[in-house]
Write a protein that binds this DNA or RNA. Sequence first.
DNA 1: TCTCAGTTGCTTGCATGCAACAGGACGATA
DNA 2: TATCGTCCTGTTGCATGCAAGCAACTGAGA
Lengths: 234, 234
Amino acid sequence: MMLTSDDVKRRNAVAGVNGAGAGSIQGRVISEMRRRIIAGEIEPGVNLSELALAEEFGVSRTPVREALKQLQTEGLIEIRPRVGTFVTSPSRREITELFEMKELLEGAAARLLAQRGRVPEIDQLEENLRQADRAVARDDRDRVAELVQEFHDLLIIGADNSKLEAHYRTLMNQLAYSRLVATSLSQPGRPVQSDREHHHVLELIIAKDGDSAERVMREHVRASRRALLTGLQS
Amino acid sequence: MMLTSDDVKRRNAVAGVNGAGAGSIQGRVISEMRRRIIAGEIEPGVNLSELALAEEFGVSRTPVREALKQLQTEGLIEIRPRVGTFVTSPSRREITELFEMKELLEGAAARLLAQRGRVPEIDQLEENLRQADRAVARDDRDRVAELVQEFHDLLIIGADNSKLEAHYRTLMNQLAYSRLVATSLSQPGRPVQSDREHHHVLELIIAKDGDSAERVMREHVRASRRALLTGLQS
DNA sequence: TCTCAGTTGCTTGCATGCAACAGGACGATA
DNA sequence: TATCGTCCTGTTGCATGCAAGCAACTGAGA
């Protein structure tokens, strides 16, 4: 039997980024472990033994083992043969590299979205900024963080390139970026500045000025990184 | 015990892109299967059953199963639960997306390399072009294809960003790009043109003009894609 | 007190058996 | 003949047992 690529894509659309079906035991373990690691609930340490996890999830070692293997290829954990399994945290060097990639991919997404013209994601981005303006005005930090995340997400989705999206999500997971947004936005004046930059990018996208949209988006990513690093030092 | 990120990187450097150690059974299966798929030795079909592969490699299902799982997350195969395992080939849409990513990453690599100044990779690139000039002059197609691959590889390595390199390799595997280079270069005049473009990019890199290097590199990727598509139609 | 050899516990790697399900083959029936 | 229902084969998902190796601990000896 021949497998068409459309079949593959349909399946992936259902299963999300996961390789395994979400209904399987293995799929559950993958999702849950990924969530825990990104949320920082697991201390980097040797506690991640297959047996312990299997008992906790009430399953055998096999699905746990396969789930860990996948998380390893995603770069979230490190399996050392016959030693143990560890949650990895990126080195300084890797963090720099990850931000370089973030800048690259988000910049490209802005350009691609600008080239697509008026698509639904544009409307969603406009709505996002309307809500963000209000949230910033009333200094609702949690809501602002949510909306910032959504803005970047919409941008990536709007680029309409599934490979770009998949790689982007992998990178953001490695960065545990969702945890970092709040820190970045905790810098004085950063929410307002960030909001302004979002507006600027979206204007350029709507104006179909891909080059400028990419450039401004990259500057925005760099600015947010600077805010983050400042926040982490203090 | 705490795992430092340097430890992780050291291991990855040894194991290459592979998650598993090359010495293990599983590692052998991964490498060999990946090679076969990229080389196009395996017909997309249901022949890939765990049991059959296990017998062929003389091992049990377990390591084969884990190897297939990793290849799935790399996007090379598709495992349909309780149905079978299939080699995937990208759809038209996905091929477009993959080339978009190729253009993006190679363009970025050119920019990053230009920013780094005089590094060893620059010398290697110059040597590569010297050899390429000669190979083109004597119309040695196989050698030209090799050198073209090496040029792009050196560019990526020279960008000195391990994340970029890892994602790039994944994408090229999905494209089975090594098989396509020859087709692209089979177009009349393409080897000469490609060589010229390589020279231009390298000049700009040496001149530390990152912006232009990126722009020209992206144009080069698009040109090579056009040549490839023309070659595939005929 | 320091060093080093031996031992022991814990970890993952691999093999194997059973279960559950998908999909086609085949036959009964309208 | 067309269609529906049943069975049967093949596949992967999961559970479990054993093997191999690493790391830390323990104890003896200097």
